[in-house]
């Protein structure tokens, strides 16, 4: 079976961004927090994937695993040797893959807890700027502090899909897609659960939810931890898929503002809408990327910038003309009276 590469490209972009945008939707759409630092948690996941699995395997198989692991002189040799081990050992590949994802989710939850400290004190735009600043700080640290992500040269990430041989990209793509679908189901169930209803209630009226005896600080902390842990998973998956990581690719534009644009287009507070929004955006982006070459002779600039114009314009136009997105958030209806009576009668 032959799958055109462009379809795989769209599926990968869709899966990664769907996970990130869903995590953003929990925090922004349901909890009403101005999460302008999504890149922080995504980068955490990527850091885990680029610093931990390679070191574990290097330690087991007797390669340098200290500070020198991520230096550009050793890194490509060590990771190449590790990849050859992983190629012949699918069980080890899958094991290290799952272990890294678990560590990434724990690290993400920890980062979420850290961001919740200012989040329970500050409000609205102040909080947004603080979160944005935290993301920038981690980006700087991972760009200049070599032992984490190789600093300015980046690192290679061990490839847990190598055993699939020629089918590597197909296996990796469908693994990502499976994770994205699982996360979608999880987030949908979570937001329909009592916890999800508490989040919405807090978003709509903090006073009311406090009157009903809920601790707002605790709810916010929970929302941020769950969101960050999911986003961190996406970061780790992205690093595993691309096989390398460098801090400069984790900018606030690609990992904070794009997910915001996807979420606003699809419908803030509606997981199915968000899925649709990500799909539409990813397809349009791919079309721009594919056909920008054809446009090049007619314009006096590099058409690569049109992607930014498009995302920016989309954010502005949606904010002005359709703030509720393609699929607006549905109000929660109580059960019809007949059903309620039936239910009470049965008791």
């Amino acid at each position: 079976m032959e799958i055109p590469p462009i379809v795989l490209y769209v599926l990968v972009d869709f899966s990664i961004y769907l996970i990130v945008t869903l995590s953003l939707n929990i925090e922004v759409g349901y909890a009403g927090l101005p999460q302008f630092g999504r890149v922080l948690a995504v980068l955490t996941g990527a850091l885990v994937a680029s610093a931990i699995p390679g070191r574990i395997l290097a330690a087991i198989y007797g390669y340098p695993y200290g500070v020198e692991y991520s230096s550009y002189e050793y890194n490509y040799k060590v990771v190449d040797a590790i990849n050859r081990v992983l190629e012949s050992n699918p069980a080890l590949s899958v094991g290290i893959f799952i272990l890294t994802l678990i560590i990434a989710m724990i690290a993400g939850a920890f980062i979420g807890y850290l961001t919740s400290r200012p989040a329970i004190r500050l409000k609205e735009a102040y909080l947004g700027i603080t979160l944005l600043a935290m993301g920038e700080t981690l980006m700087l640290i991972s760009y200049y502090y070599q032992p984490l992500m190789g600093g300015t040269t980046g690192v290679l990430v061990p490839d847990p899909f190598r055993w699939a041989g020629g089918l590597r990209f197909i296996v990796a793509t469908f693994t990502l897609l499976t994770f994205a679908i699982l996360i979608l189901i999880f987030v949908e169930l979570l937001t329909k659960s009592p916890f999800g209803r508490v989040l919405r209630a807090m978003r709509d009226s903090e006073l009311a939810i406090a009157v009903y005896g809920r601790d707002i600080a605790k709810i916010r902390t929970c929302a941020l931890m769950v969101g960050a842990s999911i986003a961190s998973l996406a970061g780790a998956l992205n690093a595993f898929y691309t096989g390398s990581a460098i801090a400069t690719t984790y900018t606030r534009v690609t990992w904070t503002f794009w997910p915001w644009a996807f979420m606003m287009l699809g419908g803030t507070g509606n997981n199915i809408g968000v899925t649709l929004g990500v799909l539409v955006f990813v397809i349009v982006k791919t079309i721009i990327v594919t056909y920008r070459g054809a446009l090049a002779p007619f314009v006096p600039f590099d058409p690569v910038w049109l992607e930014y114009t498009f995302v920016g314009l989309a954010i502005v136009l949606i904010a002005i003309f359709r703030p509720q997105g393609i699929l607006p958030e549905k109000p929660i209806f109580t059960l019809p009276r007949r059903k309620l009576e039936e239910f009470l009668g049965r008791r």
Partner: peptide, 8 residues
Amino acid sequence: GVDLVFLS
């Protein structure tokens, strides 16, 4: 959003 457009 405006910033992204101007940046491009």
